Amino acid sequence: MANKLGGFLDLTASDLIGQYTELQKIKAGLGTQKVQQSTAAQDQALHSSDYTSGSEAISGGNAQVPGAAAAPASYWDRVPKPLLYGSVGLLGLGLVLKAIK
């Protein structure tokens, strides 16, 4: 009887470790699939439009109003001029004060 059970219980540590690593690989693969699915769902929710009509999109600010002026074409036209001139003025004042000291 010991001979019959000997083959059944003949496991080595490498067999157990091999099975454990295979199980961990499967779990990691399933975890990766779950993350990919949730990422896809979040991307879809983020980029989908909640507006049902054009007037809703216009009132929400996500569409251009017909007949309104077009958005500025160049980067220079989009820069807020008071902010730009103020920052240049502060930089100039700082350089003047540095030169005086």
Rank of each mutant, 00 (worst) to 15 (best):
Ile100Glu: 09
Asp77Cys: 00
Met1Arg: 11
Pro82Val: 00
Pro80His: 03
Leu93Phe: 09
Ser74Gly: 11
Lys101Arg: 12
Leu97Val: 04
Thr21Phe: 04
Leu90Pro: 02
Asn3Pro: 04
Gln24Asn: 10
Ser55Pro: 06
Thr52Asn: 15
Val96Met: 05
Lys4Thr: 11
Ala28Ser: 13
Leu16Tyr: 09
Gln37Leu: 11
Asp50Lys: 13
Ile26Cys: 04
Leu16Ala: 03
Ser87Asp: 13
Trp76Gly: 07
Leu9Arg: 02
Lys27Asn: 15
Leu30Cys: 02
Leu90Glu: 05
Ala63Trp: 07
Ile17Trp: 09
Gln33Pro: 01
Ser14Glu: 15
Gln19His: 07
Ala71Phe: 13
Leu11Phe: 12
Gly31His: 06
Ser48Val: 07
Met1Trp: 13
Gly6His: 10
Gln24Leu: 10
Ala41Ile: 14
Ala41Met: 04
Ser59Thr: 14
Tyr75Asp: 15
Gly6Ile: 11
Ala63Asp: 14
Gly54Val: 07
Gln33Arg: 08
Val35Arg: 06
Val35Gly: 03
Gly60Ser: 03
Leu9Ala: 07
Gly86Trp: 01
Gln64Asn: 10
Ser74Thr: 15
Asn62His: 12
Ala63Lys: 10
Gln37Lys: 15
Gln42Ile: 14
Val79Gly: 02
Ala73Met: 09
Val96Thr: 08
Leu5Arg: 12
Leu23Arg: 09
Asn62Ser: 14
Lys4Pro: 05
Ser38Met: 09
Gly94Cys: 05
Trp76Thr: 11
Asp15Cys: 05
Asp10Gly: 02
Asp15Gln: 05
Gly92Gln: 11
Ser55Ala: 09
Leu93Lys: 01
Ala2Lys: 02
Thr21Glu: 11
Ala57Cys: 03
Arg78Thr: 07
Thr12Met: 00
Leu9Pro: 00
Ser38Gln: 14
Ser53Tyr: 01
Pro72Val: 01
Ala41Glu: 15
Ala63Leu: 06
Gln24Tyr: 05
Val35Pro: 03
Pro80Val: 01
Ala69Phe: 04
Ala70Leu: 05
Phe8Asn: 04
Trp76Lys: 14
Gln44Asp: 15
Tyr51Ile: 01
Gly6Met: 11
Ala69Val: 10
Gly54Thr: 12
Asp50Ile: 15
Val65Ser: 08
Leu83Val: 15
Gln33Tyr: 13
Ile58Lys: 03
Lys25Ala: 13
Leu30Thr: 08
Ile100Leu: 14
Thr12Leu: 01
Gln64Ser: 11
Leu11Ile: 07
Lys4Asn: 14
Asp10Arg: 01
Met1Asn: 11
Gln44Phe: 15
Ala99Trp: 09
Thr12Ile: 04
Leu23Asp: 12
Ala69Asp: 13
Val65Lys: 08
Pro80Gln: 00
Leu95Ser: 09
Ala73Thr: 15
